[in-house]
Every structure is written in C-alpha cells, then in structure tokens.
Nucleic acid binder design. Sequence first.
DNA 1: TTTCAACACGCAAACGTTTTCGGTGGGTTG
DNA 2: CAACCCACCGAAAACGTTTGCGTGTTGAAA
Lengths: 360, 360
Amino acid sequence: MLLIKFKITFIYEMLFFIDKMKRKVTLKQIARELDVSISTVSKSLRNSPEISEDTRQKVQAFAKLYNYKPNNIALSLKNKRTKTIGIIIPEIVHHFFATVISGIEQVANENGYNVIVCLSDESFDKEVINMEMLANGSIDGFIMSLSKETQLKKDFHHIVEVINQGMPVVMFDRITNDVFCDKVIIDDQMAAYEAVDYLISKGFKKIALVTTVDYVSVGKLRTEGYLKALRDHNMPIEEEMIVKIEDIENCSVKIERLLDEQKPDAIFAVNELFAVTSIKLAAKMGVNVPEDLSVIGFTDGIISQFSTPSITTVSQNGIKMGGRAAKMLIDRLEMEEEDEHYRTEVIETHLVERESTPTL
Amino acid sequence: MLLIKFKITFIYEMLFFIDKMKRKVTLKQIARELDVSISTVSKSLRNSPEISEDTRQKVQAFAKLYNYKPNNIALSLKNKRTKTIGIIIPEIVHHFFATVISGIEQVANENGYNVIVCLSDESFDKEVINMEMLANGSIDGFIMSLSKETQLKKDFHHIVEVINQGMPVVMFDRITNDVFCDKVIIDDQMAAYEAVDYLISKGFKKIALVTTVDYVSVGKLRTEGYLKALRDHNMPIEEEMIVKIEDIENCSVKIERLLDEQKPDAIFAVNELFAVTSIKLAAKMGVNVPEDLSVIGFTDGIISQFSTPSITTVSQNGIKMGGRAAKMLIDRLEMEEEDEHYRTEVIETHLVERESTPTL
DNA sequence: TTTCAACACGCAAACGTTTTCGGTGGGTTG
DNA sequence: CAACCCACCGAAAACGTTTGCGTGTTGAAA
C-alpha cells in the first residue's frame, strides 16, 4: 500500500518533471505544487505586501526554477489590450516600406509593443480582410498605408468602421483625407516642387515628368508640385513632356518614346524605379547622364545609392516616418481620456545630390 | 413613474446604440439583449442543431446587425493556439529578408495564420528578448534566421528552450546544426561552386573572392564552395585573392587594395553589396566591367537588377524559401501526433546571367 | 478575559469563448 | 395514466490571469 502510494507520487513527480521541461508552467500548477491558492502565487510574484515574506520567497524561487512567465494571451484578455500594433502595407519587398516597418518596430519595441504585419498586395479585398482579421481583439491599433486599389475605389468603410469601434488608426504616406485619424506624411508637393525648382535653377529648359496615374495620392501630389514649379517660373507646361505610368512592369515603352520624341534635358521621376529606368534607357540610346540628361528621383533607396550613375533624389526618411507613426499611435493608446483631435505630422525631406545631376 | 421607467430604458437603449457604434459586441451582450443564455447565442451562431430554427435566425440576424465577430484573444486562450507565426530576422531593410517575409506571409495567410515580425538587429540579446516575449503564448511557432552575434557566440539556449517547451521552430538561411529543428536553406557551397566553376569555364585565371568573416554560416559555406571549385580545377589558392570583410559599412578599402594589388580578372562576391561595390571601385580605377573584369554576385536583389552594368548573380528565391518555411511550420503545427523527425529542405538556386560577365 | 487590529491567505469574479452535461416541457406510446 | 423520448435551452467549467474582499489566526492592548 505504501509502495503504491510511493509509486503514484513518483510517477506524478516524473510527469511534473517532464512537464517542467516541456510546456509552460501556469499559476495553477505552481499553486497546486506549493499547496497554496492561485491568488497567493500571483500576488507573491507581483510582490504584493499582502503576502508574507516567507511564502513570497518560496513562490518566487519555485517560479524561477520552473521558469514561469505569465501567459500573454490571458493577460491580453484580462487587460483588454494586447500590446501589439497591426501594420497593413501594400507590399514589403519595397525598400521604403521596409524602412518604415523598421522604424515602427524600433519604437514599438522600446515601448513594449510587438508588431504584426499584413500585406495587402495592393488589393482592396486583402486590405479589408486583413483589417477585419486583426480588428477582433488581436491588436490595439493600426498603422497603415493604402493599397492602390483602395485609393482608386475611394472606399474606406473598413477603416472608418475600425475607428468607430474605438481602435486608433495612423495612416502614413499613402493616405486619404476622407477619414479622420492621425497621419504622418511628407509634403510630397513641396518636395517635388523643390526638386523641379532645383533643375530649373540649374538652367534646364525641357524638364520632363515621369509619374504615376493620378489616383495614387503621392503621385498626384508630386505631379502637382512639378506643375506648380513650372508655372511659378513661367515655363510652358507641355502634355507631351508628362508621362503617366499605369503598369509599373512595363514602363519602358512610354519612357523610351518620351526620350526619343521630346529629347528632354532633365527628368523628374516620382520614384526610384522610373528614375533608374530612364537612365538605363537613355544610355541605350547614347544619351549620357548627367552630361546630356539630368535625372532626379524620389525616395532615397537602394537603387538611387547603387545605380551608376548614382541618382540625385528626394530623400524621405522611412525610419523616421515609421517611428513617428508608432509614437503617435502609442501616445493615443496610452492616454486615458480620448482625444478627438487628430494630428497630421509632416516629415521633412531634402534633396540628396548625387551623380545624375551636374555637380557645379 | 412610467416616465422614469421610460427614460431609463431610453438611456439604456442609447448607451447600447453608442455601444453598437463603438466597441465590439460580445456574446454576453447579445444574450442579454435577446434574453437568452450565452450558450444559446454561441450555438446559434455556430449553427448547432441543438437550437431551434426560430431562435437561430433571430440570433444570427441580431449578430449580423451588430456586426458580431468572435474575439480572437478569447478564442486563442480557449483553443490554446493563436494562429499566428513569429518571425525573427536580423533586419528587414534587406531585400532578401523582405522577400522571405513576403513568402511566409502569403502561405501563412492562405492557411489562416498571421505573422508577427521581430528584428534582432544582428544582436544576440535582442534575439533572445524577442523570442522570450513571443514564446509566452503569443504565437504558435517560430520562423527565424540567426543574427550574426548569435552565430558568433554559438549560444542557442534560447532556441533550444523554446523547442523543449513544445513550440516548433523552423530556421532558414542562417542556420546552425547545433539545434534540432526543421530547416530550409539553399546549398550555399554548391551554388558558390557553380558560380566559380562558371567563371573558370569562361577562362578566367585570377579569380578573387570577396566574402564575409567565417562565423557567418552562409559566408563560410560560399567560401568553401569557391575553394573547392579552384581545387577541383587544379588552380592555385592564393590568400591574397581572398578578402574577408568584417565591417560591411566600409568594405571599400579592402576591396580597393585587392583590385589594385592583385588585379584579378574575375571576382566572386558573396552578396550583392560586395559585388556592386567592387564594380564601382573598379570603374573608378578605370577598370571596366565586364571587359576588363567579370563579377558574379550572390542573391538576386534590386541591386543586381538595376546596377549598371547589371550583375550576374546566384539567385536564391526568397519567396519560395519563406513559403516552404511557413509550410513546414504549419504542417508541424497541424498534425496531431508529434513527429520527432526533423527535415531540412534545400531550395534550388541558379545562375542569372547579366551584363557583369561576358556574354559569349 | 475580552476586543481589536494587523497579518496572511483564499474565494470568487471578471475578461470572451466553446462545449459538455443536465434539465424542462410537451408530446407520444404502452 | 404513467413512462418515455425528444427538442430546446441554460448552467457551468475551462483556458490563465489579476484583484477586491472576506476570513481566520495571532498577538497585544484594555
């Protein structure tokens, strides 16, 4: 009889030992093992003065031995907050978005938050699905940049809904003025203006624009900056000098035609890809950059730095942008009284002069 | 009295209306409103045959009206699984890692999983902290690539611990053989071998190697591939033709010295950055690629595609790598009996021929 | 000896689900 | 009329926490 009792205890100990090695240990298990209540264990671990020095020590030692860590999910359920931020962006294989994530992750981490990343692939439906997935308790707030399709459809009901449910949203870069929330952007129009102004000041007369279709918010703004710069300097605006590219995959044809027919002496491109493509096409046609043609791009990414010649470009600091967005979101999450007053932060840009524009 | 009663009801209705617009509605609220029990509501929504057609309809209509969605956190707690995957990588502003995440996210999404991303910044401590944060119930499994510091210290206790707790881990690219788990890699040595073999077959005699320090696992393997290729073709291995770069920020000096003193006729670089830097430095010294010098890089990223000349490189398909890793993890998560047999998948690579090597 | 505070701890509710089990009422059958 | 079955529904436990409150014990003061 004693033997059986011993055996059972022994087996139980063994099981618990295995349990220690595997699976996580819970308050309940510690409580059972130490023959105290769950609340005593919990309070001991949180150094509550309610518990005697003695048992507190004992519990803490045991907890340390078994490497107890409170279960995040249970905490989330109790506290009604998950300490994680949802990020929804069009794509991640894109230097700018990667830098933004990096910036978000950094300040999120500093504040004890995690980030969960969803990609919309520029699709409206995926954006909606992802938001709905995350909105059901998985996260405390969103940081997002709109997909192209969403910008085209101008349908923001999913975002408004989430906001109405009391979940804060911060939009960055590709934003819309149709929803009220915090935003962080660059002054796309101003930045484009300055770039074109720079070209004009260098004496260029035939400045072409390679841009996106208008429904892409940032593309449109940069286009407006280009137009404004020309107007302010009383320079003619010619439709033929402007190419709007819909399908980024084969932008070559249109750019080639531009170079061939218009023979611009400078090009302002609204992104890196258009800039480098222009340079490569020009080279193929015997037009040298920067001797025969100057090029300014947008976004200071890998391409601008490493292409030959390296590309003068408008830098938009993704790290800082992401950091600010995260800061805004966390601030809003951690203030007690709700603030209906939304802010829009503007990140400063500057022109990075490189080899694709004349040095003097 | 009636008035008061009315007023109270009215206020209550108002509050509930506000509640509908804001915050999420729970089973309990629906139950209270419809004057049934919580379980009836739950069963109705899951179409349990236990519930009469009548009440089921009623509940479902009400739920739809108030846009009820079950709370993910509560589900996670109950089901003991979160349906999210934790990703830990050294950095995200890096084309290859971005593509891997993209691949993971895609198949994760297809299987109803989310991904939560943590960056180690090549730091051992951050890697450990991130793993511990996520291991406490936030995720179901890890997909990770080791930080440089971790590879240097050879300290993998945090990974082993997590695995012992019963949480599956899949490692990719920068792996270690000291931990037993699923892995997905490319055959770095073989791929490097083929690249160098290609150069040899083109008749190059002075083939230099620009690589990383040895503790970076993939760098070491690629170095071995280079050495093996030379040996197999009975070509001399000269220490001076091999530069091992510690600090990626200023790799220029060492490469410049190599070009200047050794005058190689071909270079095999173990990543894009070393390749493009070599080309740029060569150009500065009046050495033209590919006429005077051939260059082959590793990883088919943005730089290789858009640099001038574009760079012949070993493509390692990050999308596929991420996809496979996610598949392996999810398979392991969703099989009932535990399988102690770990697999290592090898993703095929191939040489992408571009302008930095002779075309004929 | 009585009273009362301080101390140490346990109970139970709460967060939002799912699911098992048990119960009630009405109808059918022997 | 009793026994039984079935359709329908609710209570409660469980997941792992935290925390307000109740309670029992002890020691000291009155």
